[in-house]
Structures are given as C-alpha cells and as structure tokens.
Nucleic acid binder design. Structure first.
Lengths: 108, 108
DNA sequence: TGGTCATTTCTATAATTCTAGAAATATCGT
DNA sequence: ACGATATTTCTAGAATTATAGAAATGACCA
C-alpha cells in the first residue's frame, strides 16, 4: 500500500464512531451486519451513522450489499491487512518481520 | 490500548504530511531527526510543519528534545506498537495471533 | 549586545468535517 | 396501491482543521 492510501484509511478509522463501527463489523465476521443493528449497538442517529459508514465505504474498508430492506455491511479484511502491513513495514521498528524468502523457506 | 486513544492516534496519522513525518522518523531510528531536517525532506513551510508535528507530539507519537538550537523529534515506538496491537487484536481477522501462554510455551 | 539560526506562536482565511432533523428512496407484505 | 420498515440524501449550522506569512522566542557565537 502506498502512503496516501494508508493516510486516507487511517483518517477514516481515526474517528471514534467509525472505529467502533469497524470493530463491530470485524467482530461480526465476514457475514457483516445490517446498518440497523450497528445503530442499535452505537445508539447514534441514523443520518449520522449513515454518513460515517459512507466514509468507510468510500475508502474501501467496508463493503455494502442489499438484502431485502436491509443493507449489510461487511468489513474488507484485505484492505485492513494491507494497512497493517504498511504500518508494520514503514512505521515500526523493523523487528521479527520475515521476508518473503523466509516465508518460502519455512513453507518448503 | 483503549478505543478512544486508538482513534486519536489514527486521526493524527491520517494526514499525508504527518504520516510522512512519522515514517521519516521511524526510518531515522531512535535517534530521531531535527525539525529542520524533516522540513528539508518534505518541503512544506516551517509553520505548517510545526503545526503538524505538534499534533503528533500532543497524541504522544513523537517526543521532542532540544539540543542546542535544534529540536530533535523522536518516534515513540511503544505507542505505535500499542496502536498496531489494538488494530491487530480488535480490527483484524484473528489469525496467527499467539496467546501469551503460547509465547511462554515457545520460549520455554 | 548584536546577529544569525532554528523553531514556534500568532493571526487570519479557507476548507473540511460533524451533527442531526426532515424529506426522499427502496423494499416488502397485504 | 398502501403502509410500514430500513436507510440514504438533503440541508444547514456549529465546530474543527489546514495553511502559511509575519512576528516572537530561544540558543549560540563573535
């Protein structure tokens, strides 16, 4: 992941409501949760919540799929992993980070 | 780390200039860099840069120490590790995350 | 004690984000 | 078609953040 994309993801996660939404979705697993259920957990007005979820969708951290009247929100684990990889590789003391070669050697 | 602190850290890292500052400091290592050297790398006006660095200092991701006329900025690896631990534990598919017990068993 | 360097603080403006009520849209059951 | 449900979009005001020039501060040197 490139720095600007990482910054956009971090910015979106850097709001308590959005971070809580995302954590909730991760805990729910790949099935995700409908917006209404998120709202029950957080107790914020629907329009405010919708606005925040839209941020997460725009940056690609959350995907939405309609199921009947409900809009299911699923966390995008891949993008989140990419973000954590970026932080680990570029913004950490580079320790215990096996190279791709090492991984291949382990696997073989 | 608790969610609100994580959100504050993420918010501060969620700006391209600040993320680049932090990455630069990490690359520089525990010795850190003086503000002026950061400015040379990024090429933003001094007052703008100072403002952004102040954000990072406020949230605790960067520490500052005066050395003569220069202000040295050092990355706070511990807080960054705490943030990554939070994201890994709370916002990821919980895979390959050894428990403390596992670590003890490995070590022994 | 005057000058220069490094950096911040002050100041002001522009831009963005947050919040939430109200209205609109989409879906379903009858 | 109608009413209920789920959710978004519209709207607007309040609050916050970003930007950067200018002035101020602190440190060193002559």
């Amino acid at each position: 992941m490139e720095l600007n994309q990482a910054a956009r993801c971090l910015e979106k996660l850097g709001h308590p409501i959005r971070l809580e939404v995302f954590r909730l979705l991760v805990r729910a697993g790949p099935e995700g949760l409908p917006v209404g259920e998120i709202q029950e957990h957080l107790g914020v007005p629907a329009s405010t919540l919708s606005h925040h979820i839209a941020h997460l969708v725009n940056v690609g951290l959350v995907a939405q799929e309609r199921q009947g009247r409900q809009l299911i929100c699923r966390p995008e684990f891949g993008l989140m992993d990419g973000l954590i990889d970026f932080l680990t590789a570029e913004c950490c003391m580079l320790v215990d980070k096996p190279s791709e070669e090492d991984k291949t050697r382990e696997a073989g």
